[in-house]
């Protein structure tokens, strides 16, 4: 059972307090977008064996969505951060690249 620190309320929460929300930083494509872009937005996910930026909601806590950088195989968490951003903060990228220098968001 995973645990994450909610960046809003500061609580280290067990998975039972949280709800997973899939891949983070998806770009929304709306009316007028190409079939290819829209397909990518609706259906295509990275699903890496490696570092994954993902959405979590502190549903049994403060109710806020937050984002996490987590390795899907080793389960290492490189940090959690606000959902109100289009890319991970520099500090988290640094944490990831300390272990995986080649990593690209």
């Amino acid at each position: 059972m995973l645990k994450f620190t909610c960046p809003y309320c500061g609580i280290e929460a067990s998975e039972t307090e949280l709800a997973a929300g899939g891949e983070a930083h998806l770009k929304r494509y709306g009316p007028g977008s190409s079939e290819q872009d829209f397909e990518g937005y609706l259906f295509l996910r990275k699903n890496p064996k490696g570092v994954h930026l993902e959405r979590w909601r502190h549903v049994m806590g403060c109710g806020k969505w937050f984002l996490a950088a987590r390795h899907t195989a080793t389960l290492e968490v490189f940090g959690t951060y606000s959902a109100q951003t289009h890319e991970p903060p520099a500090e988290i990228i640094e944490n990831i690249r300390a272990k995986f220098p080649e990593w690209q968001a």
Binding site: G21, A83, Q84
Partner: peptide, 13 residues
């Protein structure tokens, strides 16, 4: 309600 919060917090913040 969760659906609304998702869009407000993660897309149109």
């Amino acid at each position: 309600h969760a659906h609304m919060e998702d869009w407000l917090q993660c897309e149109w913040w």
